[in-house]
């Protein structure tokens, strides 16, 4: 089975002030476990200012990320659900998956599985409906292949 996201990298919150706060919270596990540095978090936020909201890949879903750089020590993903949703430049987002990519290829397999997962909109709804990270993990284990 393709690698998905460990429970230690998942969080559920009720609300966030804005998308910047949501991305900072979503990035915490990757900072704590030393996958990324603060610079990477800032780069992700700056990228939205620069390029617009195209990281909103599906309704309710965003994939914050920035260019591979020395600010990424290890390739990985973290996940955050914001129950009430948060505005990202005109789009409501309830599910964030932060992508930290060390280079341009080490994450490809992971992203291919994520792409398949996202094409079924029900998957996003079901993850957002979860009240525990354990339930989210169960869904990912069943449907993220």
């Amino acid at each position: 089975m393709a690698q998905n996201i460990p429970e230690s990298h998942m969080q559920i919150i009720r609300s966030a002030k804005n998308y910047e706060e949501a991305i900072r919270v979503a990035s915490k596990p990757l900072l704590e476990y030393d996958y990324i540095t603060e610079e990477y978090v800032q780069a992700m936020i700056d990228s939205i200012e620069e390029h617009g909201p195209y990281i909103v890949l599906a309704d309710d879903f965003a994939l914050p990320h920035a260019r591979p750089s020395e600010a990424v020590k290890e390739t990985g993903l973290s996940l955050l659900t914001v129950k009430e949703g948060v505005d990202l430049k005109g789009n409501t987002v309830k599910l964030f998956v932060v992508l930290a990519a060390k280079d341009s290829s080490s994450h490809n397999e992971m992203l291919q599985s994520l792409a398949e997962f996202l094409m079924d909109k029900q998957n996003i709804k079901d993850v957002v409906a979860c009240n525990t990270v354990k339930d989210i993990k169960t869904i990912l284990n069943e449907r993220w292949n």
Partner: peptide, 10 residues
Amino acid sequence: CGFGVGSSMI
């Protein structure tokens, strides 16, 4: 996409 690694892969 902006970086050619994440969104464009999806």
